[in-house]
Amino acid sequence: MKKQKSMSKNKKIKNILSYVILIILSIIWLLPVFWVIMTSFRAETGSYTPYFFPKGFTLNNYLKLLTETHQFYFAKWFGNTLFVAVCSCIISTFFVLSVSYVMSRMRFKLRKPLMNVAMILGMFPAFMSMIAVYYILKGIGITQSLIALIMVYSGGAGLMFFIAKGFFDTLSRALDEAAYLDGATKFQVFTKITLPLSKPIIVYTVLTSFLTPWVDFVFASVIMGDNYNNYTVALGLFKMLEREFINDYYTQFAAGCVLISIPIAALFISMQKYYVEGISGGAVKG
């Protein structure tokens, strides 16, 4: 009896301890998020303040960011990025699913060699080749356009099939076999049976490829060059941190950060379940 009591007491202490740790960690995890949101509403400009909590709050940073076009075309760039993100994530998803399905379900002579080559290709630092990519786009005649960006972001997507392949590997093949017996073609099996079962991995692929255009500034700056109208938000935000602008624009930078994080974070958190299923089905089995 006494022993049981001490055990439950132990358990209680352990629980409290766990909660304390969790709360401390949560504070650390949320601090940057909290700070950037707070900064985006700060009335005083400048990137540093000698106090933690702003003295005044305002909505102006958001209003200015979205309406002023004197220096930065944020609203336009936001639209550009959204367009590029949507298009490139559709194409990427199609590429990734095609390749991973083939690699998982079909057997052909070049399969292993192709998988090895893909793994090797993924290991080169991508931006090394950006000048060559620029000239290839120029050869096709589409530099400085949003199409060019879409092609760059989704062109190599076929290489990112490992996780999706791992996911397909875990799907049972019994259904496929049954369908073949009914006379279905492989294409029908792919579109009618496998894809509907692959919601988690589709969500995962869509999410990861949707993200790229929002965060890339290396390729975007090489490809867009002097075409200011076709910039993306990442380029714009990066520009705001330059010496001439940082003091006037830091709070607007924070507002911009919040604005691009909201859709992505919302999408991510609502799709979390699928994301986890997709990645843990795929990543661990390579």
């Binding site: 199609f94 590429f95 990734v96 095609s98 390749v99 399905y101 083939v102 893909a118 290709l121 080169f124 991508a126 080749s129 950006m130 060559a132 990519v133 290839i136 092609m151 760059v152 989704s154 062109g155 190599g156 997507a157 076929g158 290489l159 294409f187 792919f190």
Partner: peptide, 18 residues
């Protein structure tokens, strides 16, 4: 069929520059 387009993309934007 499924590999053609992704392969073209990889060829043009990864292999060739590489």
């Amino acid at each position: 069929t499924l590999l053609t387009l992704p392969m073209i993309g990889i060829l043009a934007f990864t292999v060739l520059p590489l």
